[in-house]
């Protein structure tokens, strides 16, 4: 496939902003529309854009497949751990452990923020991983 400079330049300029926007969606999920799933997919689409423009080898150099796989596994463990944190503190599986009893609504909800962050990481890593693997087939 012949590539033009336009694709190369645009994707390089665009990808960081996609990452930034994805991070925003992930980190502000408790306040505004968005959240871990959506933000994660936006981040992954940035990775995919880079992989398409620069080739899957370049993308894999930036984000080694193995590191992505490890990230996904570790984050899965962390999400389960977050669930069990509620069990340990006695509020129940997957319950909000960081809520300190102060009158609601508070400005930010740390537990939801952390869950969003974990889910964003996991979805971003997972979706990138699938696509990079499929690109590597060609």
């Amino acid at each position: 496939m012949r590539k033009t400079d336009i694709l190369d330049v645009v994707s390089r300029k665009l990808a960081p902003f996609m990452f930034l926007f994805g991070l925003y969606l992930v980190s502000h999920g408790d306040l505004s529309p968005g959240g871990g799933f959506q933000g994660g997919v936006v981040i992954a689409s940035g990775v995919i854009l880079l992989a398409m423009a620069k080739g899957s080898a370049a993308a894999a150099a930036l984000l080694p497949l193995r590191r992505l796989a490890v990230t996904e596994a570790v984050v899965f463990g962390l999400i389960l751990a977050a669930g069990f944190a509620g069990v340990v503190t006695g509020v129940g599986f997957l319950a909000d452990v960081l809520y300190d009893g102060s009158p609601l609504p508070v400005v930010r909800t740390p537990f939801v923020f952390i869950l969003n962050l974990l889910i964003g990481l996991k979805v971003g890593a997972g979706a990138s991983l699938i696509c990079l693997h499929l690109f590597a087939q060609e």
Binding site: F76, G77, L80, F84, V87, G92
Partner: peptide, 17 residues
């Protein structure tokens, strides 16, 4: 009840690692 559901997930996590 919750343990019945969550324990196999933990098993899967161990296998993943």
């Amino acid at each position: 009840v919750a343990l019945l559901v969550v324990l196999p997930f933990v098993g899967a996590l161990v296998a993943l690692f």
